[in-house]
């Protein structure tokens, strides 16, 4: 359940931003969670509601975007959208693919008051 500690990171970042930008309440939080980022979005949602209690983001809505992951085939060089780390190249079928995008884990933006 490392999603809980990630939620604590999210809360700390938001609290620090509140002090810097002078907002008192967060209505909505947008996250970008890459499909290959070692994070389970549902566990993150569960932890988010609990961890945000007592912070400026208590009760805030959580929007999670999961942009497509991409990998480059080491055999033919093709860059393709992949769902998993073990997906073969859709072009040549080779199984050795190097992930190039899809492990990001960030707060994209906030809607604040």
């Amino acid at each position: 359940m490392h999603e809980m500690s990630l939620c604590e990171n999210i809360r700390d970042i938001i609290q620090a931003q509140a002090a810097e930008s002078g907002f008192v309440r967060v209505n909505r939080v947008w996250l970008e969670v890459g499909p290959l980022s070692c994070v389970e979005p549902e566990a993150l949602r569960f932890g988010f509601d609990v961890v945000m209690r007592g912070s400026v983001a208590e009760g805030a809505a959580l929007e999670i975007a999961t942009p497509a992951a991409k990998a480059q085939c080491l055999a033919c060089g093709q860059v393709a959208v992949v769902q998993h780390r073990y997906d073969p190249c859709p072009d040549c079928g080779a199984v050795e693919m190097q992930v190039t995008e899809g492990d990001a884990l960030k707060i994209s933006k906030l809607e604040v008051v």
């Binding site: 990171n9 970042i13 907002f23 960030k106 707060i107 906030l110 809607e111 604040v112 008051v113």
Partner: peptide, 24 residues
């Protein structure tokens, strides 16, 4: 939500773009 003179108010809501890595 924020209320001004007892009324619900939408005008102050704004978006802040962060693009901040959660593992930072």
């Amino acid at each position: 939500q924020v209320q001004i003179d007892g009324k619900h108010h939408h005008g102050d809501a704004r978006e802040i773009v962060l693009e901040r890595d959660i593992m930072a």
